[in-house]
Write a protein that binds this DNA or RNA. Structure first.
Lengths: 126, 126
DNA sequence: TGAACATATGAATATACATTCATATATGAT
DNA sequence: ATCATATATGAATGTATATTCATATGTTCA
């Protein structure tokens, strides 16, 4: 069935509030930036990585120690450290056989902090 | 081959820097809280959801308009809104057939803002 | 009551990704 | 040079999840 001109807007083809949609559309940051933002938060969306970041907030650590701390395999930790490094959240230095990782972003603490604030707020409310 | 007593600590079974590991272990928040924090950030780790949140930062919107804005199906948006609602990031009100969604967390703006700051900083540096 | 419509939802599918396993690389010690 | 060790990495696997599709629910209007 074809929509006639001046018919009541259908949801599938038209917006109900076209003015709102147009205004919001103009204000949205560009798509690529939003994709990068999503990828950034995705990094924090894993318990193992959160733990690694919090651990490094305390002090630099080698792969081996992180694996020991979290009771996980060296390989798993190494893979995750690569993710964190690709996201520019950690950096590393090599000392002989040992590779030490440390934070490379001064915002990590605040970001995780805000997440925890949200949780506490939410847990209190319900 | 069995490790003898007093042998040099092996990475797989022992930590290299036991003191550091022990100190960090004491300072780590409890496991459940970290899991919730990870789940919280996971919600931000999706481009569609980031867009929805940013849109709602501007004004409340109905499902239909959000679908129109993002050029996605009503069903996909509805599913994502449920995720956002379960995370207490959005709330809704019903007006006849139409359901309007709006933000339910005053931190959303700052959290996404920090993500974008990180991206810009990173993109500048390389 | 029945038709049109806005939204919600369960199942299916396709894709992303975390961990494991096996192995490669690099460094230090003997 | 050989061996032990610390880390990195590619492939495989299992699990999580984003979207689609079909359909259910709830509301308005005639």
């Amino acid at each position: 069935m074809i929509n006639e001109k001046n018919s009541i807007p259908l949801c599938e083809s038209n917006c109900i509030h076209e003015d709102v949609v147009n205004r919001v559309k103009e204000n949205l940051p560009d798509d690529e930036l939003l994709g990068e933002a999503a990828d950034f938060f995705k990094v924090f969306g894993d318990k193992t990585r959160i733990k690694i970041l919090l651990a490094l907030l305390d002090s630099e650590m080698c792969v081996c120690d992180i694996a020991c701390l979290l009771d996980m395999s060296q390989s798993a930790i190494s893979h995750q450290l690569r993710v964190l490094k690709n996201s520019n959240l950690v950096k590393n230095r090599k000392d002989g056989k040992v590779v030490y990782y440390s934070l490379d972003d001064e915002h990590v603490k605040e970001i995780i902090g805000q997440g925890i604030v949200h949780i506490r707020h939410k847990n209190r409310g319900e």
